[in-house]
Design a protein around this nucleic acid. Structure first.
Length: 875
RNA sequence: GGGAAAUUAGCUCAGUUGGUUCAGAGCACCUGCCUUACAAGCAGGGGGUCACAGGUUCGAAUCCUGUAUUUCCCA
């Protein structure tokens, strides 16, 4: 059968992925083996695969596949997140295109639409992961709104409520007027924008023409003012103490209060206080018991408190009120001003601070063990620089607002039986609620008297249970699976969600299982384009991962994405990296073609082949040690690079060339067999990174028994490393490179055989001579006592090598080269001798360093002598 | 404004407790090769005042101080 000259990934990928699936290799059940567990960071259920997912999931697959080869019971749990804000936004948008408004639907109707959408689009991303080769246990695929998962979310809410960790409170929250929901501090992006500072004057009450001037960036909130605040130490305003002021346009009289909070330097030193629309003002309002006047509707338009501006958007009002203030003589001046404005991460709408009744988790106590676990190393971060960021946040953790004004998600299990702030109970079902109402208020109510809270829980309030609830650790405490798989081993995620997700999983782990949820956290970077911009849909700078896979093969893309992606660093991605990956798979493919084409004969093994085998054995073991170490340190891309070079440079460029029989010559069976074994070992190392081609060649290189698949083959074991062989080869390598250089410099074709004469001045190892002969294409390698005249020459380790001239030679160039080498060596010698003559060096440096300097000195002296002699002869 | 980290070849990064004339890899680049495994290749080669300025040391990319620039986190 003809084997194609280039590797064709598409067919192999389909074939092997379904083969692995049919064999159930990805599936895990608890057994006696050590468990190795990874839970996937659940992508949004309606999400589409982007480059960030590619990076993240390739790393996970590498770790999982290697663990499998190390004999562990590897379990990679996939699933999706309901992502309440993002998904609801998509459903709302889709309905809008059909002419349906969310406000026209009941909650039940809307959820029906949402589930239809989820069933249609949900899980696309998981199918895409299969194309990448991800070896997830698909039988365990989960979803944060699955019934049992949801139950655990509600259980946790009730449990924390009972423990007094969940409370309901009026708080200033970040309000997204577009999504109509509160968002957490972490979901607000602060950006600097150019705006205006408006100077507005307020009349002092009871005066004829006494005014005070405030500065504000948001003049529309004047309508919500309930005080003017000045610093009691501000000498400029002593006359205002105890007075009142009149709000322009609204014509309300408000007190002038004194507080040191006011920055005398900023603006005019007079601060308008709007408790409903600014966090700091809210605090002042509480302190001075001020009236709270909310002027905004939830959608960002003004309400009745906005007087004649009612129904208009806040930005529109800002312009209009500027004009009105000016026309009526209240506007003193405006200035350009740069300030930071919060934008919603999801909708990019300007966030409004808004007072509302929300549900909170108090975090301080919960966070303590989670902070300790990372600081004392029970949980390792890779790279560990992220520990600092983590500590900073955890030490200053704020309470977590967990209610969201949405329908898509887990509905808060609170039931209201009245309108009072405290007229509610928290219960799993309405029946339980009825009983609790009786207990709490002594009221006998029926189901229809109770009204469940309209809000749903923050998505992270369900995903923080992911490593526990994917094994039903809360609904079926102590079950076999949670005992076996938990704590999980490695978590691979982005540093952006360290607080949203990682920290909270650790908190939940301690609170509910008394244990860490994972041992290692590997932080990936952000995938950027060549210009350093973050890849995003709106910029259109992100390649379609599926197209990449079709073009370069999944293995090629996996290599491309990992080849330059150290942990925690951003990955500047360019498709040329996939090309490199694709080229690598092709190289391996051709190595296989070469071996496969050899005709085996029962002949004697050439000496050079025996030496080559000895060397590669040593090289392999040495590199494997390094690779294992790199894996232990989570230096994934370095491990890949080591494998890449071991395969390409050491195996293909050196080893295969050393054992390659002449054209149409057979190979001896011993060498062929050993070579196949080497190749198989290399394929094993490649398997985590390039699983498809590894499996493909694994089955082509040899007949395999049922179940003898590389995905389950044992990871190679390190054997002792023969350092002597490695050193001797290095010497031979240098000789060979020198021979090649002479060929190139003199335009001697590779097929032209040459003679090599060696004047041995030093005791050297001759064991690789057969290899030198073969690789140098020499007719003979002869040892001589005297220099060989009319030759190209070079020196390795004080030994002189001569290749007699063919027809022509550039004597001048040859001499110049030698002179240059001599100069360099002399300079080198000088620096060494200077060091050796330095008494302080001799006194301070360790013996080993001194010894190595002495050796360098004698080597240099030798070399100089030879060079000078040769130069003298060339005249 | 407060905190953290970074700055080594054109690009992306290594560089272990200071010790081979001021240093490595991959890609890119240059030169020569269609040498029957692979031109998605082979062979060879060039390229760095290790951000800047001081200091400690016999010796600094590595330790200390300051400056500049960048990134991230928090307000």
């Amino acid at each position: 059968m003809e084997i194609p000259k280039t590797y064709e990934p598409i067919k192999a990928e389909e074939k092997w992925y379904s083969y692995w699936m049919n064999k159930g290799y990805f599936h895990s059940e608890p057994d006696e083996r050590e468990a190795y567990t990874v839970v996937i960071p659940p992508p949004n259920v309606t999400g589409v695969l982007h480059m960030g997912h590619m990076l993240n999931n390739t790393i996970q697959d590498v770790l999982v596949r290697r663990a499998r080869m190390l004999g562990k019971n590897a379990c990679w749990v996939p699933g999706t997140d309901h992502a309440s804000i993002a998904t609801e936004a998509k459903v709302v948008q889709k309905l809008r295109t059909e002419g349906i408004k969310k406000s026209d639907l009941s909650r039940e109707e809307f959820l029906k639409h949402a589930f239809v959408w989820k069933d249609k689009h949900g899980g696309i991303i998981l199918e895409q992961l299969k194309k990448l080769g991800c070896s997830c246990d698909w039988e365990r695929t989960g979803f944060t709104m699955d019934p049992e998962y949801s139950e655990s979310v509600i259980d946790v809410f009730m449990d924390l409520y009972k423990k007094g960790k969940i409370y309901r409170s009026v708080r200033m929250v970040n309000w997204d007027p577009e999504a109509l929901t509160a968002v957490s501090d972490e979901e607000v992006n602060h950006k600097e924008v150019n705006s205006k500072l408006f100077y507005v004057r307020y009349k002092v009450a009871g005066s004829d023409d006494q005014w005070l001037t405030i500065a504000t960036t948001r003049p529309e909130t004047i309508l919500g003012d309930s005080a003017i605040c000045i610093n009691p130490n501000d000498a400029r305003f002593k006359h205002l103490h105890g007075k009142q002021a009149i709000v322009p346009i609204a014509n309300r009289t408000i007190p002038i209060i004194l507080d040191e909070y006011v920055d005398m330097e900023f603006g005019t030193g007079c601060l308008k206080v709007t408790p409903a629309h600014d966090v700091n003002d809210y605090e002042l309002g509480k302190k001075f018991d001020l009236e709270t006047i909310d002027i905004l509707n939830d959608n960002g338009t003004l309400n009745a408190n906005g007087l004649h501006y009612e129904g208009k958007d806040r930005f529109e009002v800002r312009k209009a009120i500027e004009k009105e203030l000016y026309d009526k003589g209240y506007l003193v001046k405006t200035e350009d001003h740069i300030n930071k404005v919060g934008f919603s991460e999801r909708t990019d709408a300007v966030i409004e601070p808004k007072l509302s009744l929300q549900w909170f988790v108090s975090m301080k106590e919960l966070a303590q063990p989670a902070l300790d676990a990372v600081m004392n190393g029970d949980i390792q971060f890779h790279p560990d620089k992220f520990k600092n960021t983590y500590r900073h946040w955890m030490e200053n953790v704020k309470d977590w607002c967990i209610s969201r004004q949405l329908w898509w998600g887990h509905r808060i299990p609170a039931w209201y039986f009245g309108t009072g702030a405290n007229d509610y109970v928290v219960a799993k079902t309405v029946e339980e609620a009825i009983v609790l109402v009786k207990e709490k208020a002594g009221l006998t109510v029926s189901a229809s008297d109770l009204k469940q809270d309209e809000d749903v829980l923050d998505t992270w309030f369900s995903s923080w249970l992911w490593p526990i609830s994917m094994f039903n650790g809360l609904t079926r405490p102590g079950n076999e699976e949670i005992k076996y798989y938990y704590p999980t081993n490695d978590l691979v995620t982005a540093p952006e969600i360290m607080f949203f997700w990682v920290a909270r999983m650790i908190i939940a782990g301690y609170e509910y299982l008394g244990e860490i949820p994972f041992k290692n956290v590997y932080y990936t970077g952000i995938v950027r384009d060549k210009l350093g911009r973050k890849m995003s849909k709106s910029l259109g700078n992100s390649p379609d991962p599926i197209e990449l896979i079709e073009k370069y093969g999944a293995d090629g893309v996996r290599v491309g994405i990992l080849i330059s992606s150290p942990a925690g660093n951003d990955l500047p991605f360019d498709t040329s990296q996939c090309e490199q990956g694709r080229n690598f798979t092709n190289k391996v493919w051709n190595a296989f073609r070469l071996i496969d084409a050899w005709e085996v004969r029962d002949i004697e093994q050439p000496k050079s082949s025996a030496k080559a085998i000895e060397w590669f054995e040593a090289k392999f073991n040495k590199t494997l040690t390094e690779i294992n170490d790199q894996f232990d340190k989570f230096r994934i891309s370095e491990a890949l690079m080591s494998i890449y070079k071991l395969v390409w440079d050491d195996f293909c460029s050196w080893y295969l060339e050393m054992i390659k029989p002449g054209y149409e010559q057979p190979i001896d069976s011993k060498t062929l067999e050993t070579t196949k074994v080497f190749f198989e070992k290399l394929l094993k190392l490649m398997q985590p990174f390039t699983p498809f081609i590894a499996e493909e060649i694994w089955h082509l290189i040899r007949e395999r028994a049922e179940g003898d698949d590389i995905i389950l083959a044992p990871w190679p074991v390190v054997d002792s490393v023969n350092e002597t062989v490695l050193a001797n080869f290095k010497f031979a390598e240098e000789v060979i490179i020198n021979i090649r250089n002479i060929r190139k410099n003199n335009n001697i074709a590779n097929k032209v055989k040459m003679d090599l004469f060696v004047k041995k001045n030093n005791e050297i190892d001759l064991s690789f001579d057969s290899v030198i002969s073969k690789m140098g294409n020499l007719t003979q390698l002869e040892y001589v006592k005297e220099k060989v005249a009319n030759s190209n020459s070079f020196i390795v380790d004080s030994n002189e090598y001569y290749i007699p001239f063919g027809d022509t030679i550039d004597l001048v160039a040859e001499k110049a080269k030698m002179q240059e080498e001599l100069n360099y060596t002399k300079g080198f010698l000088q620096s060494i001798q200077k060091k050796l003559q330095n008494e302080k060096f001799m006194a301070g440096a360790p013996e080993q360093v001194v010894l190595s300097e002495r050796k360098k000195e004698s080597d240099a002296l030798n070399k100089i002598a030879i060079l000078e002699e040769k130069l003298a002869e060339m005249v």
